[in-house]
Design a protein around this nucleic acid. Structure first.
Length: 280
DNA sequence: AGACAAGCCTGTACGC
DNA sequence: TGCGTACAGGCTTGTC
């Protein structure tokens, strides 16, 4: 399940390898992959265009093009981008390949998505800073300098919900999914069910610190690859942050800090993993 | 066979 | 009334 660290890993690789490349041909075969426009419109908007840069907001990737439009990609649960180098005879398409951008150096950028929740679209509707209008409802991105403990404090101060729901709300902070929400709560020593109204100043600082340190470490490790919807980077390699998970996917196992059995319960309709001793 | 996992959107219901 | 929040349903498919 790609969340911020996984999407950022893909963004960095795309930025290094696809910027300056021109799309020669675009082919969409998935029926659900392009929803906000027709596949022909998307392909027409991409063909002949050069990728200027690759940016990210929360879990969304967007690539401004040389004509002022931007390609937007969301991987949702099972989406994956593959960059397949030019090779005589080509390389077989993975099952569930729904779109392919053929680039001017012979490489192919492929969108693979078994559960078909992911989507691509091209938009010309951009804010002055270049952010697509469609992404403007997203909250602050925690890897930017727009985010710090003071900003988090203000956001938490106006919320009346659980810490888990707060962290998952993309309109407040963009990029955190179920996995990193649980890891951040553990690192901060806060239970996922804690009400935001009850947080002390020192706990808000702890959440801020945990948020930054967990996401930074996960980006360093090139994301988490778990058994289910296995995340892969552009080249097909997996991340390694799962080796550092303290709670997510560890229900029934001993806490790495105190040995207490990690609990799994439901919070805000989602699975939540926590240590009942280390978190309060 | 059927439940479940995930992210996000939509619609509806609720409390203050 | 209106705002913020809660919750359920829909979308999908591989895995247990």
């Amino acid at each position: 399940m790609p969340e911020l660290p996984e999407v950022e890993t893909v963004r960095r690789d795309l930025d290094a390898r696809v910027v300056g490349r021109r799309v020669v041909t675009a082919v969409v075969t998935g029926k659900r992959t392009v929803r906000r426009q027709t596949a022909a419109e998307l392909c027409g908007a991409l063909e002949g265009r050069t990728v200027s840069e690759v940016r990210r907001r929360g879990k969304y990737l967007f690539a401004p093009l040389d004509d002022g439009a931007a390609l937007v990609v969301h991987l949702r649960m099972s989406g994956q981008l593959q960059l397949v180098p030019a090779r005589p005879g080509g390389r077989a398409m993975a099952p569930h390949t729904h779109a392919v951008l053929y680039l001017d150096d012979g490489s192919e950028l492929r969108f693979v998505d078994p559960r078909t929740f992911g989507e691509l679209f091209v938009t010309r509707d951009l804010r002055p800073g270049g952010l697509p209008e469609a992404l403007c409802s997203l909250g602050v991105d925690p890897l930017t300098d727009e985010f710090d403990a003071a900003v988090l404090g203000r956001l938490l101060g106006s919320a009346r919900t659980t810490v888990k729901s707060f962290l998952l709300d993309q309109r407040r902070i963009a990029g955190i999914g179920n996995l990193y929400a649980d890891e951040i709560c553990f690192r901060a020593g806060i239970l996922p069910v804690r009400r935001t109204e009850t947080l002390q100043a020192r706990e808000i600082r702890a959440i801020s610190e945990a948020l930054t340190s967990v996401l930074d470490a996960a980006v360093q490790a090139r994301g988490s690859t778990l058994g289910d919807a296995r995340y892969r980077d552009l080249a097909g390699n997996h991340g390694s942050y799962q080796e550092h998970h303290c709670v997510y996917g560890r229900a029934g196992e001993p806490c790495r800090c105190c040995g207490t059995t990690i609990i799994r319960s439901r919070v805000a309709g989602r699975s939540a993993h926590y240590c009942p001793t280390c978190q309060s």
